[in-house]
Design a binder for these strands. Sequence first.
DNA 1: GGTATATCGATATACAATTATCGATATACC
DNA 2: GGTATATCGATAATTGTATATCGATATACC
Lengths: 210, 210
Amino acid sequence: MVTSVSVQTLQRLPIYLNLLKSDSMQSAAYLSSKAIAEALGLHEIQVRKDLASVSSGGKPKVGFCRITLIRDLENYLGYNDSNDAILVGSGKLGKALLTYDGFKEYGLNIVAAFDNDDSLAGQKEGNVPILPLTKLSDICDRMKIRIGIITVPTTAAQSICDLMVASGILAVWNFAPTHLDVPEHILVKNENMAASLAVLSRHLMEKFTD
Amino acid sequence: MVTSVSVQTLQRLPIYLNLLKSDSMQSAAYLSSKAIAEALGLHEIQVRKDLASVSSGGKPKVGFCRITLIRDLENYLGYNDSNDAILVGSGKLGKALLTYDGFKEYGLNIVAAFDNDDSLAGQKEGNVPILPLTKLSDICDRMKIRIGIITVPTTAAQSICDLMVASGILAVWNFAPTHLDVPEHILVKNENMAASLAVLSRHLMEKFTD
DNA sequence: GGTATATCGATATACAATTATCGATATACC
DNA sequence: GGTATATCGATAATTGTATATCGATATACC
């Protein structure tokens, strides 16, 4: 239960959670790993292994208790105690993330946004105030912010990242299509759309050139 | 060169490409795998292996020719011949993607957007017309669209996906945090932000509870 | 022109993740 | 209450990915 879980498994956990909370599952009190696996296109062994690492376990013949499983998953993922975050780069993508209210469900709370362009300062985007970059360090320090979201152009990403790290940020969610250099103890999670596009594009090429 | 490349490698290729095209690399005509590895925080062996699968190879003592490498990568990734795509779901995220002009660089061209809400029909978002859902099949068929982007709420995702597949879409880029059931030959690439958040959130939890 | 060296490419090892196999256990049915 | 069965959990085999080692080769320098 305390054992460290692989990133692969970790990334599947929200998918289980999402399924368990979905309308189609509301009726069932218990779910077998086989049923879950079929609903998600996975293998039942994998489902059991994944769930074993976060949950108190299921019962033979009946399966896993849906309610308990939801609670265990949310606890493990930390969706109950909310994480405050800041976002830098109020361009198109940044604004979309600011106005997207689905993050609350995952315990993410964007408290402030920053932009290089000071003329944006003072505005609000989806209830989140946009502030000048110069205030970033101060805000992070005072509010004990641990998560930084980067939605700036590639060229600015590294310097923003450095600023975040210097301001006490411990986890960076990077939407810029570039590699970020960070100290050992900092986590960078890349949301690399170019990588996804590569997979799609290549798949189509292979379909048509073979 | 024709050998199939792992998804992991494939997803790193755009990162190499991005680095090679970056300002800081413009001056160098040749780059060693070691230099590339250091710039990206990877291991040089991995860089060589990745590049070997797409490129004609480097020269001992001097390294890889930057220009050639860029050309090979772009060819392999299909960034030269552009891929037309449609997008369904003109909400916050959908609009952000429509107005984000960075996709062109990767050969992705969104030609039309669709929304359940017919009142949006006729509008334009970033030069892309928004059309009623009923026209989707016709457009896909006439324009031979192969890529569909899903930015609708979870509950609608599967039915939109089914519609796309029925309309000839071969690759689906899914931004809804849910699993999609598709026939064998269809590729689904999930852009699962919830999964990324799980990694971040868990990282922070472990930092503070251990 | 010969030798030293940086770098590539191929083979081999180590590690992690997924999938398969087996025994254990609780429920259901007779 | 006894037996059959569905399902779990642990261990083992397979697969895939990342890292290390080694020989080959082209450039540079003497």
